[in-house]
Design a protein around this nucleic acid. Structure first.
Length: 451
RNA sequence: GUGGGUGUAGUUCAAUUGGUAGAGCACCGGAUUGUGGUUCCGGCUGUCGUGGGUUCGAGUCCCAUCACCCACCCCA
């Protein structure tokens, strides 16, 4: 029979056991942190009816979505978790209590060209708050505050949550009489960091026929920088010329105020007038989080406020605000930068038990004793050389190896080796368990996921 | 979708002007039969991405194709 060469599609991340453990650990932090803020876990299908996912129609989504048919059904893989949430909320409206706060960690799919830090299958870790009819502006501040909490709990320090408000942008472009072009202009301006002010100006003027003096106005506007307070003050100078703008400015001021109240340090958030975010359902506050040392991989977390999440599925007005961590991308960057703490235990078990007698019963009993005490234990009963079994423990970084031979069983003790020091103890089973537990507690002390 | 690059053992890569393929790592075995990580010795592996062409002869040149990577687009 011919051997087929195994392969994994490009843009799909497949991890070895140890890094997978790291990934799971990060997810666990996310779940716990989200729960801490009153968010409930949610899961929705990876596959949905195409009509549901493409309700909005057109645009990039349609080009990038994985779509296929099975029999008569027209199906698609979800490309984010927000659209399925909209469907979910509209569908279960009467059974949910609002404001509805849910988190969801799941894989999403985008049929685009894979690249460094850009995947076709990746995890998003979303949190959203959906209101019934209205949703207080403080929620716009709480979302980034949670992201701050998540990132700092992971041990990450060099990150910045950038905040902006679409009403400010749309209001500003309306002042200039450029409402029609605001989408194109925003997309161009969004590239400021990458291509520079001159380039932005020439694209505006040459490609979108923005009058030169207006292009200069735009450049002057997006050049506003400094601390959040400075920027807000500068924006006050534009007040009174457009009601949408004023509304946006009020919201942004409130977000800044409450972010401070939530305890987010000034160095981790900034008002940035250039960010706009692609997904066009955002209507107010928008967020984008970047790793300061790795801006080139782009945003690792972004989101914002949408006035009417579920407009395609219900008549009800359901405003929401939320954000999505690009977990796969984040993990990829952290791994590439060697920031995943190598001292964190990634072993699949704490104790490897090597029975050396025909009768395996004593080893099984000891494994049971360990497990009853909450210690992860594994028996290695295969026909392998003794050496190979120790080497197995070594490769998997299993901290303890227990030997159970005739001598030990006769004496009613177990021999336990600490793999990191090489020390070996011979104590009775209960004492050994106690010792292992103490040792594990010591080894895990103060370990952070990132360093 | 557009533009550029690359494709050689499990992996990272090497092979002079075209003459029928090598190294590190990994893996397996050994250094007295119940003790790993270091060291030493030994061993295994390839349809040189695929198909065609030029040539006495191609991993090395040409064409096609596929795959992967990078940039743009867009985005987590």
């Amino acid at each position: 029979m011919a051997i087929l060469k195994p392969r994994t599609l490009s843009g799909f991340m497949e991890l070895l056991p140890a890094p997978q453990q790291q990934m799971e650990r990060i997810m666990e932090v996310l779940r716990q942190t989200y729960s801490l803020y009153g968010f409930t876990p949610l899961d929705t299908p990876i596959i949905e009816a195409s009509e549901v996912l493409l309700a909005k129609g057109g645009g990039e989504t349609e080009k990038q979505i994985y779509r296929f048919s099975k029999g008569d059904a027209d199906l698609s893989l979800r490309f984010d978790l927000t659209v399925p949430l909209a469907k979910y909320v509209a569908m279960h409206y009467s059974e949910l209590s609002f404001p509805f706060r849910r988190f969801q960690i799941g894989k999403v799919y985008r049929g685009e060209r894979a690249q460094r830090g850009r995947f076709r299958e990746f995890y998003q870790a979303d949190i959203d708050i959906i209101g019934d009819g209205s949703l207080a502006p403080i929620n716009d501040a709480e979302i980034p505050a949670i992201i701050y909490k998540v990132f700092s709990t992971l041990g990450l320090k060099r990150f910045q949550i950038r905040v902006n408000n679409r009403k400010i942008l749309n209001g500003f472009y309306a002042m200039l009489g450029l409402s029609e072009l605001s989408g194109d202009v925003m997309r161009t301006v969004d590239k400021l960091d990458k291509i520079g002010a001159d380039m932005v100006r020439s694209i505006l003027v040459d490609d979108y026929s923005v009058p030169e003096e207006k292009a200069d106005e735009i450049l002057k506007f997006i050049a506003i920088s400094g601390g959040s307070e400075t920027i807000l003050q500068a924006l006050e100078g534009y007040r009174g010329r457009n009601s949408l703008f004023d509304e946006g400015l009020d919201e942004l001021s409130l977000v800044v105020k409450y972010l401070r109240a939530f305890g987010v340090p000034a160095e981790n958030f900034v008002v940035d007038l250039t960010i706009a975010r692609g997904l066009d359902y955002y209507t107010g506050t928008v967020y984008e989080t970047t790793l300061l040392d790795h801006p080139e991989v782009g945003s690792v977390c972004s989101g914002g406020r949408y006035d009417n999440l579920a407009e395609y599925y219900t008549e009800k007005q359901l405003p929401g605000v939320g954000t999505s961590i690009g977990l796969t991308r984040l993990f990829y960057v952290l791994g590439e930068q060697g920031m995943l703490n190598p001292d964190l235990p990634t072993a699949p078990t704490d104790v490897l038990i090597l029975p050396m007698t025909e009768d395996l019963a004593p080893a099984v009993s000891f494994a049971t004793l360990l497990r009853e005490n909450g210690v992860r234990a594994q028996l290695h009963c295969e026909e392998k050389k003794f050496k190979a079994k120790i080497s197995y423990a070594d490769k998997l970084c299993i901290p303890y190896v227990v030997f159970l031979g005739e001598d030990e069983i006769q004496a009613g003790i177990v021999a336990c080796k600490d793999m990191s020091t090489g020390e070996q103890t011979k104590l009775d089973p209960a004492a050994t368990v106690y010792r292992i537990k103490a040792g594990l507690a010591e080894k895990n002390k103060g370990s952070v996921i990132l360093e």
